[in-house]
Structure formats: structure tokens, C-alpha cells
């Protein structure tokens, strides 16, 4: 599915540019996108190093294990395939907490760490496990308490109540997350049958 989407976006984009007489934009966009990819990766290296460094300290101090034990009952409901003392639990909890608090740049390092731990328990390293699918569904639809960027944009545009969208955002992410969890449950059922 990813291969098809990738091909469709690329080829439809090129055809559209060709028909509308703007074929130059293709070259331009492709090169800019490649540069942007490097920029994002470099930024991520900084963020990852910072947070994974801190996480190592928390691990060695026994804090991550404590946190994992605390959140395990809920998390294990969502990830029935994980082992009870899986090292992925701590990283998953840290990732979701960072997401909820709106600490976007801390969420990614913890999330990638969780993926690494999940991959260690994966019998087929090229195919996603059900736990990974669950994790990504939670991750992309996670409840957001503070949509900080949008509040900033609204302030800049002179909104009378820049924060009035907090409630609606919490509701919408709550719905998305619930739908993600239910759909994940159904997909897992359906694949097994």
C-alpha cells in the first residue's frame, strides 16, 4: 500500500505539473524536499541525543522501570502481545506522556526508542507487529492537552480568545484516539480469524 501511494503521489504530481505547464516545479520541489529531509534528520539527531541521554540516566537510576510498572496495567491492555517486563513498556509510556503534554520534540526520541525495543521482539524484522501498529495508532492520534502551536498562530492573528480551542482539540483528539484503539482491536481480530 505504501509503495502504491508513494508512486501515485509522485506520478500524479509530475503529470499535473506537465499538463499545467509548470514542469520546472517538479525538479525544484524534489531537490528542496531532499534538502529538507537532511535538515529534519539533523535536527532530530540533536533532539534524539539529548532525550536518549536523559532517558539512559533515568533507566540506570531505575526510574523507567518504576514508571513502566506504574503504567503497565493500562498499557498491557492495549498491547496484549507484549511480555510483562518488556523494555518497550517504559519507552511507550514516556512517548505517550510527552505527546499528551505537547512536548513534541521529546515524543519522537522516546517513540523511536520504543520501536527499537518492539523490533527486538519481532520474529519477522521486515514486517510490522500488531504491537507496532497499535503503538503508531496511539502515537498519531494521541490526546493533546495543549495545542501550543495553534494557540500561537491564533494569538498572532489577534484572536479574542486564542485558547478557546483547547476544549475542542481535546475532544477531537479523544475521538480520534478512541477510533484508533477500536479500529486497531478490530483489525487484530480480523487478521487472526
Amino acid at each position: 500500500m505504501v509503495n502504491l501511494i508513494w508512486l501515485l503521489m509522485l506520478s500524479i504530481g509530475i503529470l499535473t505539473a506537465a499538463v499545467s505547464g509548470r514542469i520546472d516545479t517538479v525538479t525544484d520541489s524534489a531537490m528542496k524536499a531532499a534538502e529538507l529531509g537532511v535538515e529534519i534528520a539533523i535536527q532530530l539527531i540533536g533532539m534524539m541525543s539529548l532525550w536518549l541521554g536523559l532517558m539512559r540516566l533515568a533507566e540506570e537510576a531505575g526510574l523507567v522501570r518504576g514508571l513502566a510498572r506504574l503504567g503497565a496495567p493500562v498499557i498491557r491492555l492495549l498491547f496484549p502481545s507484549l511480555k510483562k517486563d518488556s523494555p518497550a513498556l517504559g519507552a511507550i509510556i514516556l512517548n505517550l506522556s510527552a505527546n499528551i503534554l505537547g512536548l513534541g520534540n521529546a515524543a519522537t526520541p522516546f517513540g523511536l526508542k520504543a520501536m527499537k525495543e518492539l523490533q527486538k521482539e519481532n520474529p519477522d524484522p521486515e514486517t510490522a507487529t500488531p504491537a507496532m501498529c497499535t503503538f503508531l495508532a496511539l502515537n498519531t492520534s494521541c490526546i493533546t492537552l495543549i495545542p501550543a502551536t495553534m494557540i500561537g498562530v491564533r494569538m498572532k492573528m489577534n484572536s479574542l480568545h486564542p485558547t478557546e480551542i483547547i476544549g475542542t482539540t481535546i475532544f477531537a483528539t479523544g475521538c480520534a484516539m478512541t477510533a484508533g484503539i477500536i479500529a486497531d482491536f478490530l483489525f487484530r481480530r480480523w487478521r487472526k480469524a
Partner: peptide
């Protein structure tokens, strides 16, 4: 980051959640 090529139903899940959102 971990070398997974087959996403299984992960993309569908994400898009369903986006649509509900």
C-alpha cells in the same frame, strides 16, 4: 528507523483516526 518494510494495517489505522479527528 527499525527497517520495517511491510506496514500491515498501520497506515489504515492512522488514516481512520485522522478521518474521525
Amino acid at each position: 528507523s527499525v527497517g520495517i518494510r511491510k506496514y500491515r494495517y498501520a497506515l489504515k489505522l492512522g488514516l481512520i483516526a485522522d478521518f474521525v479527528g
